[in-house]
Design a binder for these strands. Structure first.
Lengths: 215, 215
DNA sequence: GAGCAAGGATAGTGCCACTATCTTTCTATG
DNA sequence: CATAGAAAGATAGTGGCACTATCCTTGCTC
Protein backbone atom coordinates (compact mmCIF):
# COMPACT_ATOMS: atom_id res chain seq x y z
CA UNK A 1 0.00 0.00 0.00
CA UNK A 2 1.07 3.60 -0.45
CA UNK A 3 1.69 6.15 2.26
CA UNK A 4 -1.71 7.69 1.68
CA UNK A 5 -3.44 4.38 2.29
CA UNK A 6 -1.28 3.76 5.36
CA UNK A 7 -2.48 7.12 6.61
CA UNK A 8 -6.10 6.36 5.90
CA UNK A 9 -6.07 2.92 7.53
CA UNK A 10 -4.17 4.07 10.62
CA UNK A 11 -5.87 7.39 11.12
CA UNK A 12 -2.48 9.09 11.35
CA UNK A 13 -1.93 12.10 9.08
CA UNK A 14 0.42 11.62 6.13
CA UNK A 15 2.59 14.45 7.42
CA UNK A 16 3.00 12.72 10.77
CA UNK A 17 3.91 9.44 9.09
CA UNK A 18 6.59 11.24 7.16
CA UNK A 19 7.79 12.72 10.42
CA UNK A 20 8.03 9.26 12.03
CA UNK A 21 9.92 8.01 8.98
CA UNK A 22 12.36 10.90 9.28
CA UNK A 23 12.85 10.28 12.99
CA UNK A 24 13.49 6.60 12.42
CA UNK A 25 10.49 5.28 14.34
CA UNK A 26 8.98 3.68 11.29
CA UNK A 27 11.21 1.75 8.85
CA UNK A 28 11.04 3.09 5.28
CA UNK A 29 8.91 1.29 2.74
CA UNK A 30 10.23 -0.25 -0.44
CA UNK A 31 10.81 2.56 -2.91
CA UNK A 32 9.11 1.51 -6.12
CA UNK A 33 9.72 4.77 -7.92
CA UNK A 34 10.51 8.34 -6.99
CA UNK A 35 6.92 9.05 -6.25
CA UNK A 36 5.80 5.70 -4.92
CA UNK A 37 6.84 3.67 -1.91
CA UNK A 38 5.26 0.42 -0.84
CA UNK A 39 4.26 -0.29 2.76
CA UNK A 40 2.90 -3.54 4.19
CA UNK A 41 0.86 -4.79 7.14
CA UNK A 42 3.94 -4.73 9.39
CA UNK A 43 4.22 -1.01 8.84
CA UNK A 44 0.62 -0.57 9.80
CA UNK A 45 1.11 -2.62 12.92
CA UNK A 46 4.27 -0.76 13.85
CA UNK A 47 2.50 2.53 13.31
CA UNK A 48 -0.27 1.51 15.66
CA UNK A 49 2.32 0.53 18.27
CA UNK A 50 4.06 3.88 17.87
CA UNK A 51 0.83 5.76 18.38
CA UNK A 52 0.06 3.63 21.43
CA UNK A 53 3.47 4.32 22.98
CA UNK A 54 3.10 8.04 22.36
CA UNK A 55 -0.50 8.51 23.46
CA UNK A 56 -1.33 5.81 26.00
CA UNK A 57 2.26 5.31 27.13
CA UNK A 58 3.02 9.02 27.26
CA UNK A 59 6.47 8.52 25.76
CA UNK A 60 8.35 11.07 23.70
CA UNK A 61 9.22 10.42 20.07
CA UNK A 62 12.90 10.07 20.97
CA UNK A 63 12.17 7.55 23.71
CA UNK A 64 9.92 5.51 21.45
CA UNK A 65 12.62 5.46 18.79
CA UNK A 66 15.29 4.24 21.21
CA UNK A 67 13.10 1.50 22.62
CA UNK A 68 12.00 0.28 19.21
CA UNK A 69 15.58 0.36 17.92
CA UNK A 70 17.09 -1.52 20.86
CA UNK A 71 14.36 -4.10 20.85
CA UNK A 72 15.25 -5.10 17.30
CA UNK A 73 19.02 -5.00 17.75
CA UNK A 74 20.24 -8.48 16.77
CA UNK A 75 23.37 -8.04 18.92
CA UNK A 76 21.48 -9.18 22.01
CA UNK A 77 19.90 -12.49 22.90
CA UNK A 78 16.28 -12.94 23.80
CA UNK A 79 16.55 -12.39 27.53
CA UNK A 80 18.87 -9.40 27.18
CA UNK A 81 16.72 -7.77 24.56
CA UNK A 82 13.68 -8.14 26.73
CA UNK A 83 15.61 -6.46 29.52
CA UNK A 84 17.12 -3.77 27.32
CA UNK A 85 13.70 -2.78 26.10
CA UNK A 86 12.48 -2.41 29.66
CA UNK A 87 15.59 -0.58 30.86
CA UNK A 88 15.21 1.99 28.10
CA UNK A 89 11.62 2.78 28.94
CA UNK A 90 11.00 6.00 30.80
CA UNK A 91 11.07 7.42 33.35
CA UNK A 92 14.78 7.96 33.81
CA UNK A 93 15.90 9.61 36.99
CA UNK A 94 19.44 10.54 37.89
CA UNK A 95 20.77 10.30 41.41
CA UNK A 96 21.56 13.58 43.18
CA UNK A 97 25.27 14.41 43.51
CA UNK A 98 27.05 12.23 46.01
CA UNK A 99 28.62 14.94 48.13
CA UNK A 100 25.37 16.63 49.18
CA UNK A 101 23.28 15.67 52.21
CA UNK A 102 20.38 14.82 49.87
CA UNK A 103 22.64 12.59 47.85
CA UNK A 104 23.67 10.71 50.98
CA UNK A 105 20.11 10.06 52.17
CA UNK A 106 19.12 9.18 48.63
CA UNK A 107 21.78 6.51 48.38
CA UNK A 108 20.96 5.23 51.82
CA UNK A 109 17.30 4.87 50.88
CA UNK A 110 18.24 3.10 47.69
CA UNK A 111 20.30 0.62 49.68
CA UNK A 112 17.42 -0.07 52.05
CA UNK A 113 15.06 -0.77 49.17
CA UNK A 114 17.53 -3.04 47.47
CA UNK A 115 18.04 -4.95 50.71
CA UNK A 116 14.30 -5.34 51.16
CA UNK A 117 13.77 -6.70 47.68
CA UNK A 118 16.86 -8.86 47.45
CA UNK A 119 17.49 -10.18 50.94
CA UNK A 120 14.02 -10.04 52.39
CA UNK A 121 11.88 -10.98 49.42
CA UNK A 122 14.61 -12.83 47.54
CA UNK A 123 14.08 -11.01 44.27
CA UNK A 124 16.80 -11.35 41.68
CA UNK A 125 17.30 -7.82 40.45
CA UNK A 126 20.25 -6.01 38.96
CA UNK A 127 21.94 -3.31 41.03
CA UNK A 128 21.70 -0.81 38.19
CA UNK A 129 18.03 -1.28 37.40
CA UNK A 130 16.58 2.12 36.44
CA UNK A 131 13.32 1.24 38.15
CA UNK A 132 15.29 1.16 41.40
CA UNK A 133 16.33 4.77 40.87
CA UNK A 134 12.80 5.80 39.98
CA UNK A 135 11.52 4.08 43.10
CA UNK A 136 14.14 5.75 45.29
CA UNK A 137 13.34 9.13 43.80
CA UNK A 138 9.63 8.75 44.50
CA UNK A 139 10.26 7.59 48.07
CA UNK A 140 12.69 10.37 48.95
CA UNK A 141 10.31 12.91 47.46
CA UNK A 142 7.51 11.57 49.63
CA UNK A 143 9.88 11.67 52.60
CA UNK A 144 10.68 15.32 51.97
CA UNK A 145 6.97 16.09 52.06
CA UNK A 146 6.65 14.35 55.40
CA UNK A 147 5.04 11.13 54.17
CA UNK A 148 7.39 8.55 55.55
CA UNK A 149 6.91 5.27 53.73
CA UNK A 150 7.34 2.34 56.05
CA UNK A 151 9.36 -0.54 54.71
CA UNK A 152 6.48 -2.76 55.72
CA UNK A 153 4.01 -1.06 53.39
CA UNK A 154 6.55 -1.16 50.60
CA UNK A 155 6.72 -4.89 51.09
CA UNK A 156 2.94 -5.09 50.86
CA UNK A 157 3.05 -3.38 47.50
CA UNK A 158 5.76 -5.71 46.27
CA UNK A 159 3.93 -8.80 47.40
CA UNK A 160 0.70 -7.64 45.77
CA UNK A 161 2.41 -6.96 42.47
CA UNK A 162 4.43 -10.14 42.23
CA UNK A 163 1.61 -12.43 40.96
CA UNK A 164 0.66 -9.79 38.40
CA UNK A 165 4.19 -9.79 37.05
CA UNK A 166 4.15 -13.56 36.76
CA UNK A 167 0.99 -13.54 34.70
CA UNK A 168 2.35 -10.87 32.41
CA UNK A 169 5.63 -12.65 31.77
CA UNK A 170 3.76 -15.83 31.00
CA UNK A 171 1.87 -14.01 28.26
CA UNK A 172 5.10 -12.70 26.76
CA UNK A 173 6.60 -16.20 26.70
CA UNK A 174 3.70 -17.37 24.59
CA UNK A 175 5.35 -15.55 21.71
CA UNK A 176 8.14 -17.72 20.34
CA UNK A 177 9.24 -15.24 17.68
CA UNK A 178 11.67 -12.80 19.19
CA UNK A 179 10.32 -9.73 17.43
CA UNK A 180 6.82 -10.53 18.57
CA UNK A 181 8.05 -11.14 22.11
CA UNK A 182 9.88 -7.82 22.18
CA UNK A 183 6.84 -5.99 20.99
CA UNK A 184 4.79 -7.83 23.57
CA UNK A 185 7.17 -6.74 26.33
CA UNK A 186 7.13 -3.12 25.27
CA UNK A 187 3.39 -3.10 24.77
CA UNK A 188 2.66 -4.82 28.07
CA UNK A 189 5.14 -2.83 30.11
CA UNK A 190 3.94 0.50 28.82
CA UNK A 191 0.31 -0.04 27.99
CA UNK A 192 -0.64 -1.95 31.11
CA UNK A 193 0.60 0.87 33.28
CA UNK A 194 -2.55 2.94 32.73
CA UNK A 195 -4.61 -0.20 33.34
CA UNK A 196 -2.96 -0.69 36.69
CA UNK A 197 -3.18 2.94 37.69
CA UNK A 198 -6.79 3.30 36.60
CA UNK A 199 -7.85 0.25 38.55
CA UNK A 200 -6.05 1.60 41.60
CA UNK A 201 -7.94 4.86 41.37
CA UNK A 202 -11.23 3.05 40.93
CA UNK A 203 -10.39 0.96 43.98
CA UNK A 204 -9.73 4.20 45.86
CA UNK A 205 -13.16 5.41 44.90
CA UNK A 206 -14.83 2.25 46.11
CA UNK A 207 -12.96 2.25 49.43
CA UNK A 208 -13.71 5.93 49.92
CA UNK A 209 -17.41 5.41 49.22
CA UNK A 210 -17.53 2.71 51.89
CA UNK A 211 -15.64 4.76 54.47
CA UNK A 212 -17.64 7.94 53.86
CA UNK A 213 -21.06 6.92 52.49
CA UNK A 214 -22.55 9.80 50.47
CA UNK A 215 -25.87 11.18 51.66
CA UNK B 1 11.30 34.80 54.58
CA UNK B 2 11.83 36.57 51.27
CA UNK B 3 11.52 35.10 47.83
CA UNK B 4 15.27 34.74 47.55
CA UNK B 5 15.42 32.66 50.72
CA UNK B 6 12.44 30.57 49.53
CA UNK B 7 14.42 29.92 46.39
CA UNK B 8 17.56 28.97 48.29
CA UNK B 9 15.81 26.62 50.70
CA UNK B 10 13.73 24.91 48.03
CA UNK B 11 16.35 24.72 45.31
CA UNK B 12 13.88 26.24 42.85
CA UNK B 13 15.11 29.27 40.90
CA UNK B 14 13.65 32.66 41.83
CA UNK B 15 12.45 33.09 38.26
CA UNK B 16 10.54 29.81 38.42
CA UNK B 17 8.95 30.75 41.72
CA UNK B 18 7.76 33.99 40.16
CA UNK B 19 6.38 31.93 37.29
CA UNK B 20 4.45 29.69 39.70
CA UNK B 21 3.11 32.77 41.48
CA UNK B 22 1.93 34.20 38.17
CA UNK B 23 0.29 30.93 37.17
CA UNK B 24 -1.51 30.69 40.49
CA UNK B 25 0.15 27.50 41.71
CA UNK B 26 1.70 29.21 44.69
CA UNK B 27 -0.36 31.68 46.75
CA UNK B 28 1.25 35.12 46.96
CA UNK B 29 3.15 36.08 50.09
CA UNK B 30 2.25 38.98 52.35
CA UNK B 31 3.42 42.14 50.64
CA UNK B 32 5.37 44.05 53.24
CA UNK B 33 6.51 46.76 50.89
CA UNK B 34 6.91 47.18 47.16
CA UNK B 35 10.21 45.39 47.21
CA UNK B 36 9.57 42.90 49.94
CA UNK B 37 7.10 40.06 50.29
CA UNK B 38 7.01 37.65 53.18
CA UNK B 39 6.68 33.88 52.69
CA UNK B 40 6.29 31.23 55.38
CA UNK B 41 6.84 27.52 55.89
CA UNK B 42 3.53 26.73 54.19
CA UNK B 43 4.82 28.31 51.02
CA UNK B 44 7.95 26.21 51.21
CA UNK B 45 5.89 23.09 51.71
CA UNK B 46 3.54 23.96 48.87
CA UNK B 47 6.48 24.66 46.63
CA UNK B 48 7.92 21.24 47.36
CA UNK B 49 4.54 19.67 46.57
CA UNK B 50 4.36 21.58 43.29
CA UNK B 51 7.81 20.38 42.28
CA UNK B 52 6.87 16.83 43.21
CA UNK B 53 3.70 16.94 41.11
CA UNK B 54 5.60 18.34 38.13
CA UNK B 55 8.65 16.10 38.27
CA UNK B 56 7.68 12.84 39.92
CA UNK B 57 4.02 13.07 38.98
CA UNK B 58 4.71 14.23 35.45
CA UNK B 59 1.86 16.74 35.56
CA UNK B 60 1.72 19.96 33.57
CA UNK B 61 1.68 23.33 35.30
CA UNK B 62 -1.96 23.85 34.30
CA UNK B 63 -3.00 20.47 35.70
CA UNK B 64 -1.17 21.08 38.95
CA UNK B 65 -2.87 24.45 39.29
CA UNK B 66 -6.34 23.00 38.75
CA UNK B 67 -5.81 20.18 41.20
CA UNK B 68 -4.39 22.46 43.88
CA UNK B 69 -7.17 24.99 43.35
CA UNK B 70 -10.03 22.48 43.50
CA UNK B 71 -8.59 20.73 46.51
CA UNK B 72 -8.79 23.95 48.50
CA UNK B 73 -12.20 25.04 47.25
CA UNK B 74 -14.37 25.44 50.36
CA UNK B 75 -17.53 24.89 48.33
CA UNK B 76 -17.12 21.13 48.63
CA UNK B 77 -17.25 18.85 51.65
CA UNK B 78 -14.46 16.56 52.68
CA UNK B 79 -15.49 13.49 50.72
CA UNK B 80 -16.31 15.45 47.58
CA UNK B 81 -13.08 17.39 47.69
CA UNK B 82 -11.11 14.20 48.00
CA UNK B 83 -12.93 12.92 44.94
CA UNK B 84 -12.66 16.16 43.01
CA UNK B 85 -8.93 16.19 43.51
CA UNK B 86 -8.65 12.68 42.15
CA UNK B 87 -11.03 13.30 39.24
CA UNK B 88 -8.97 16.27 38.12
CA UNK B 89 -5.72 14.37 38.05
CA UNK B 90 -4.44 13.34 34.65
CA UNK B 91 -4.66 11.50 32.40
CA UNK B 92 -7.88 12.67 30.78
CA UNK B 93 -9.08 10.71 27.81
CA UNK B 94 -12.11 11.51 25.68
CA UNK B 95 -14.29 8.83 24.21
CA UNK B 96 -14.21 8.44 20.42
CA UNK B 97 -17.29 9.79 18.56
CA UNK B 98 -20.35 7.67 19.05
CA UNK B 99 -21.25 7.12 15.41
CA UNK B 100 -18.01 5.41 14.39
CA UNK B 101 -17.32 1.66 14.62
CA UNK B 102 -14.45 2.38 17.06
CA UNK B 103 -16.78 4.45 19.19
CA UNK B 104 -19.24 1.57 19.37
CA UNK B 105 -16.66 -1.03 20.46
CA UNK B 106 -15.16 1.49 22.87
CA UNK B 107 -18.49 2.02 24.60
CA UNK B 108 -19.16 -1.67 24.63
CA UNK B 109 -15.82 -2.34 26.28
CA UNK B 110 -16.48 0.37 28.82
CA UNK B 111 -19.77 -1.25 29.72
CA UNK B 112 -18.11 -4.64 30.19
CA UNK B 113 -15.52 -3.19 32.53
CA UNK B 114 -18.13 -1.35 34.53
CA UNK B 115 -20.18 -4.53 34.86
CA UNK B 116 -17.14 -6.45 36.03
CA UNK B 117 -16.26 -3.93 38.69
CA UNK B 118 -19.76 -3.14 39.88
CA UNK B 119 -21.74 -6.34 39.55
CA UNK B 120 -19.01 -8.91 39.80
CA UNK B 121 -16.67 -7.33 42.34
CA UNK B 122 -19.29 -5.13 43.96
CA UNK B 123 -17.27 -1.95 43.74
CA UNK B 124 -19.12 1.31 44.31
CA UNK B 125 -17.87 3.51 41.52
CA UNK B 126 -19.39 6.44 39.70
CA UNK B 127 -20.41 5.96 36.07
CA UNK B 128 -18.49 9.06 35.00
CA UNK B 129 -15.23 8.24 36.70
CA UNK B 130 -12.39 9.44 34.45
CA UNK B 131 -10.29 6.44 35.45
CA UNK B 132 -12.93 4.30 33.74
CA UNK B 133 -12.33 6.11 30.47
CA UNK B 134 -8.57 5.84 30.84
CA UNK B 135 -8.93 2.13 31.52
CA UNK B 136 -11.19 1.65 28.50
CA UNK B 137 -8.79 3.56 26.30
CA UNK B 138 -5.84 1.42 27.35
CA UNK B 139 -7.78 -1.81 26.85
CA UNK B 140 -9.11 -0.92 23.40
CA UNK B 141 -5.63 0.17 22.36
CA UNK B 142 -4.25 -3.18 23.47
CA UNK B 143 -7.09 -4.88 21.61
CA UNK B 144 -6.24 -3.03 18.42
CA UNK B 145 -2.68 -4.33 18.68
CA UNK B 146 -3.96 -7.86 19.04
CA UNK B 147 -3.45 -8.26 22.78
CA UNK B 148 -6.87 -9.27 23.93
CA UNK B 149 -7.23 -8.73 27.65
CA UNK B 150 -9.33 -11.38 29.23
CA UNK B 151 -11.87 -10.18 31.75
CA UNK B 152 -10.43 -12.79 34.10
CA UNK B 153 -6.97 -11.21 34.17
CA UNK B 154 -8.52 -7.79 34.63
CA UNK B 155 -10.24 -9.16 37.69
CA UNK B 156 -6.89 -10.44 38.97
CA UNK B 157 -5.46 -6.97 38.70
CA UNK B 158 -8.41 -5.47 40.50
CA UNK B 159 -8.27 -8.01 43.31
CA UNK B 160 -4.54 -7.47 43.76
CA UNK B 161 -4.93 -3.71 43.96
CA UNK B 162 -7.86 -3.59 46.35
CA UNK B 163 -5.89 -4.15 49.59
CA UNK B 164 -3.36 -1.53 48.50
CA UNK B 165 -6.12 1.00 48.05
CA UNK B 166 -7.45 0.23 51.52
CA UNK B 167 -4.10 0.89 53.14
CA UNK B 168 -3.69 4.14 51.28
CA UNK B 169 -7.10 5.47 52.22
CA UNK B 170 -6.44 4.59 55.84
CA UNK B 171 -3.35 6.78 55.78
CA UNK B 172 -5.31 9.69 54.34
CA UNK B 173 -7.95 9.38 57.03
CA UNK B 174 -5.27 9.83 59.66
CA UNK B 175 -5.24 13.50 58.72
CA UNK B 176 -8.16 15.21 60.44
CA UNK B 177 -7.44 18.66 58.97
CA UNK B 178 -9.08 18.90 55.56
CA UNK B 179 -6.22 20.74 53.89
CA UNK B 180 -3.76 18.18 55.10
CA UNK B 181 -6.03 15.36 53.95
CA UNK B 182 -6.40 16.89 50.50
CA UNK B 183 -2.69 17.25 50.15
CA UNK B 184 -2.29 13.69 51.32
CA UNK B 185 -4.72 12.46 48.66
CA UNK B 186 -3.01 14.35 45.88
CA UNK B 187 0.44 13.35 47.04
CA UNK B 188 -0.46 9.71 47.49
CA UNK B 189 -2.45 9.38 44.30
CA UNK B 190 0.22 10.94 42.16
CA UNK B 191 3.46 10.14 43.93
CA UNK B 192 2.73 6.51 44.69
CA UNK B 193 2.12 5.83 41.02
CA UNK B 194 5.85 5.66 40.23
CA UNK B 195 6.32 3.50 43.33
CA UNK B 196 3.76 1.04 42.05
CA UNK B 197 5.08 1.03 38.51
CA UNK B 198 8.71 0.73 39.56
CA UNK B 199 7.97 -2.22 41.80
CA UNK B 200 6.07 -3.86 38.98
CA UNK B 201 9.05 -3.53 36.66
CA UNK B 202 11.39 -4.88 39.31
CA UNK B 203 9.04 -7.81 39.77
CA UNK B 204 9.19 -8.38 36.01
CA UNK B 205 12.94 -8.50 36.22
CA UNK B 206 12.88 -11.06 38.99
CA UNK B 207 10.35 -13.27 37.25
CA UNK B 208 12.28 -13.02 33.98
CA UNK B 209 15.54 -13.94 35.70
CA UNK B 210 13.90 -17.07 37.09
CA UNK B 211 12.32 -18.07 33.80
CA UNK B 212 15.47 -17.48 31.75
CA UNK B 213 18.47 -17.82 34.11
CA UNK B 214 21.42 -15.83 32.71
CA UNK B 215 24.54 -17.82 31.91
C1' DG C 1 2.67 16.32 -23.38
C1' DA C 2 -0.28 18.50 -19.87
C1' DG C 3 -2.14 17.85 -15.63
C1' DC C 4 -1.93 16.10 -11.30
C1' DA C 5 -1.07 13.41 -7.34
C1' DA C 6 2.56 11.12 -4.52
C1' DG C 7 7.08 11.49 -2.09
C1' DG C 8 10.57 13.83 -0.02
C1' DA C 9 12.86 17.94 1.87
C1' DT C 10 12.62 22.15 4.47
C1' DA C 11 10.91 25.65 6.96
C1' DG C 12 7.30 27.10 9.96
C1' DT C 13 3.78 26.72 13.91
C1' DG C 14 1.85 26.43 18.47
C1' DC C 15 2.45 25.11 22.99
C1' DC C 16 4.94 24.71 27.17
C1' DA C 17 8.06 25.53 30.97
C1' DC C 18 10.83 28.29 32.08
C1' DT C 19 14.37 32.48 31.90
C1' DA C 20 16.51 36.98 30.95
C1' DT C 21 15.81 41.69 31.09
C1' DC C 22 13.87 45.93 32.41
C1' DT C 23 11.61 49.06 35.55
C1' DT C 24 10.15 50.49 39.93
C1' DT C 25 10.62 50.77 44.73
C1' DC C 26 12.81 50.75 48.91
C1' DT C 27 16.65 50.60 52.20
C1' DA C 28 21.30 50.72 53.87
C1' DT C 29 25.51 53.32 53.83
C1' DG C 30 28.77 57.08 53.43
C1' DC D 1 20.87 63.69 51.83
C1' DA D 2 22.44 61.27 47.83
C1' DT D 3 23.12 57.15 45.85
C1' DA D 4 24.32 52.36 45.10
C1' DG D 5 22.25 48.15 45.24
C1' DA D 6 19.02 44.61 45.78
C1' DA D 7 14.25 42.74 45.71
C1' DA D 8 9.59 42.56 43.27
C1' DG D 9 6.96 42.52 39.58
C1' DA D 10 6.00 42.88 34.61
C1' DT D 11 7.14 41.60 29.97
C1' DA D 12 9.29 39.68 26.37
C1' DG D 13 12.32 36.03 24.84
C1' DT D 14 14.23 31.09 24.57
C1' DG D 15 14.68 26.26 23.50
C1' DG D 16 12.59 21.96 22.92
C1' DC D 17 9.03 19.18 21.06
C1' DA D 18 5.56 17.24 18.04
C1' DC D 19 3.84 18.01 14.48
C1' DT D 20 2.26 20.63 9.93
C1' DA D 21 2.19 23.49 5.71
C1' DT D 22 4.58 24.42 1.63
C1' DC D 23 7.48 23.67 -2.15
C1' DC D 24 9.69 20.98 -5.54
C1' DT D 25 10.61 16.93 -8.19
C1' DT D 26 9.04 12.90 -10.37
C1' DG D 27 6.37 9.89 -13.08
C1' DC D 28 1.83 7.97 -14.16
C1' DT D 29 -2.45 8.80 -16.78
C1' DC D 30 -5.31 10.48 -20.09
Amino acid sequence: MQLSELSRRSGVSAASIKYYLREGLLPPGVTVSARKAEYDEDHLRRLRLIRALLTVGGMSVAQARDVLAASHDPAFDRHTRLGVAQYLLPPHVTAPPEDTPEGATWRERRGEVLTLLRDDLGWQIHDGAPALDALTEALTTLDSLGYATATASLRDYAVALRPIAEKELAIVDEHPAIDEAIEAVVAHTVLYEPVLLSLRRLAHEDVSARLHPPA
